[in-house]
Amino acid sequence: MIYKLLSAIGVLGTIALFTGALLGWLNKRYKKQDKALVDVIEELLPLTQCAQCGYPGCRPYAQSIAEGGAINKCPPGGEDTIARLANLLGREPSTLDENFGQHSPIHLAVIDERSCIGCTLCIQVCPVDAIVGAQRFMHTVLEDHCTGCELCLEPCPVDCISLINTDIQRVYLPA
């Protein structure tokens, strides 16, 4: 009787150990790489850093969404981004909150170098350091890094910054 009991425990225990080890190995071998929710949300945003949402950049906005904040504050992303965020987070898609601005295609800032007076005001506000220049020297926009956030338009005292179409279609990651 005892022998039977022990053998049953032994056999089942061995099987359990073996299966556990196998599952553990499989889990390690084929590990799903989990990203923090904030990172996933940030990748879905258009990343213009325009601060139209009221947060100082895209990452803080993503942080607020991850903590349960509204998902309809991003004008550059528009309905598309809202839909993807809703899909990701399992929330109801809502319309864009127009208080934060209207959806428009993303542009590229260009400095008219003939009228630039070299005041460095735009350099200070650019969130991605995409404007180079020095005091009383002409400034210019690094096209590859400009996100089209429009933040540099306001401080310019001579209104020499304009926005142009980029031909580049922004794409958003699948949710």
């Binding site: 940030e42 990343l47 794409v171 699948p174």
Partner: peptide
Amino acid sequence: TLLKQYAAHKQQARQVSARVKAR
């Protein structure tokens, strides 16, 4: 096409966040 665009967007995202962080 989409995969290419996603890769480009990811690349850009990495760049943008690095620059924001540096700033």
